[in-house]
Design a protein around this nucleic acid. Structure first.
Length: 269
DNA sequence: CCCGGAACCTGAAGGC
DNA sequence: TGCCTTCAGGTTCCGG
C-alpha cells in the first residue's frame, strides 16, 4: 500500500532514470486508470513532452512536463511502476504504459485497478486539498497540536485525514501511535501536550525510517526496479500478530471506521 | 457541513 | 481438495 515512504522511494528511484526523457505516448490497458480526460486528449498533451523532474506531495507522485502540466499518479492500494524495455508482453496487471522515445517503457502495474493518472495544471489540482507535509519544517509539534484540537474523531482517523496531514496511511498511523504509546481510539482533542510531542516525533521517525528502508512491501508494492522494500520487517505492530515487541502482552487487531488497526493494549493508552 | 458507510476492484486467505 | 465467502484499504461518492 503505497503511502508517503513508498511514493517517496518510487520518486527517488525513478527520477534519475526518467528525468529529461521524452514521452512518446501513453497507452491505457484499463481505461479507468485515466481520470479527468479521454486517452486521446491526454495523449495530445503528453506526447513529445520532456520530463522535467519528479516530486511527491502526500501520496501523489508528480511528473512535471515541459509544457508546465503535471502528471499526477496516485497508487491507491496496489499500484506500482516497473521500468524496462518495451518489447514483449507487458507484465501481468499492467494498466498503463508510458512509452519513452528511447525505447523504454514505464509500466503501471495495479492488480486492484484503483490507481489513477490525472493531468492537471499547477494550482488547479487535487493537491491544493492536501494538508501539511509531515516531513516539512512547518510540521512542528505546535502545528500538530493545532490540527488535533477540536477534533472529536479517534486519533487514528485524524492521522489518516489527508486534508490535515498528507501522506500517512493505515500502516504508518498504527506504527506512529504505537511508538507514541497512544491508543488509536483516543479522541484527538484529548491528546495531551506531552503525548503530542511524542506523537510528532513518532510520525517523523517512522516515516524517515521507512524511507531509509525503501518502503514496506506488505502487499503488491515494489520499486521501479522490481525490488521490494524492507520497512515492513521493522514494523512493531502494523500487520503483526501475536506477542508485542515491547511487552509480554498480545497485539490486538480491531476495526476503526472499516480499517484494520493493530495496537498493543498494554503499551498504548 | 459533518459523519458514516458503500462503492470501486481482484487476489489471497479462511471456512466448511 | 475445492468451492464459496470474506477481507484488504485510499479515496470518492452518497445518504442521513
Amino acid at each position: 500500500m503505497p503511502e508517503l515512504p513508498e511514493v517517496e522511494t518510487i520518486k527517488n528511484d525513478l527520477e534519475p532514470l526518467i528525468k529529461n526523457s521524452v514521452i512518446d505516448r501513453v497507452e491505457f490497458l484499463w481505461n479507468k486508470t485515466l481520470r479527468g480526460s479521454s486517452p486521446e486528449t491526454f495523449n495530445r498533451e503528453v506526447a513529445g513532452q520532456r520530463i522535467n523532474n519528479l516530486s511527491r506531495r502526500g501520496k501523489y507522485l508528480i511528473i512535471m512536463l515541459d509544457n508546465g502540466k503535471m502528471l499526477l499518479v496516485h497508487f491507491k492500494m496496489t499500484g506500482s511502476f516497473l521500468i524496462g524495455k518495451q518489447e514483449g508482453e507487458p507484465p501481468k496487471h499492467t494498466r498503463a504504459i508510458v512509452y519513452l522515445k528511447d525505447g523504454r517503457g514505464l509500466f503501471f502495474i495495479d492488480p486492484r485497478k484503483f490507481g489513477r493518472f490525472q493531468l492537471v495544471n499547477p494550482g488547479d489540482s487535487p493537491l491544493s486539498e492536501l494538508g501539511i507535509e509531515p516531513l516539512s519544517s512547518g510540521f512542528t509539534r505546535q502545528r500538530l497540536g493545532e490540527l488535533l484540537s477540536k477534533r472529536k474523531s479517534p486519533i487514528k482517523i485524524t492521522l489518516l485525514d489527508q486534508g490535515l496531514i498528507a501522506g500517512i496511511g493505515n500502516m504508518y498511523a498504527d506504527e506512529a501511535l504505537f511508538l507514541a504509546g497512544i491508543h488509536p481510539l483516543r479522541r484527538a482533542e484529548d491528546i495531551s501536550h506531552v503525548e503530542i510531542t511524542r506523537l510528532h516525533d513518532a510520525i517523523r521517525h517512522v516515516l524517515l525510517e521507512a524511507i531509509k528502508n525503501k518502503g514496506a512491501s506488505i502487499v503488491n508494492y515494489f520499486r521501479p526496479s522490481g525490488e521490494t522494500g524492507s520497512a515492513h520487517s521493522h514494523f512493531k505492530v502494523a500487520h503483526r500478530k501475536g506477542v508485542c515487541t515491547a511487552c509480554p502482552g498480545a497485539v490486538q487487531r480491531i476495526v476503526i471506521r472499516g480499517r484494520g488497526t493493530y495496537f498493543c493494549p498494554s503499551c498504548q493508552h
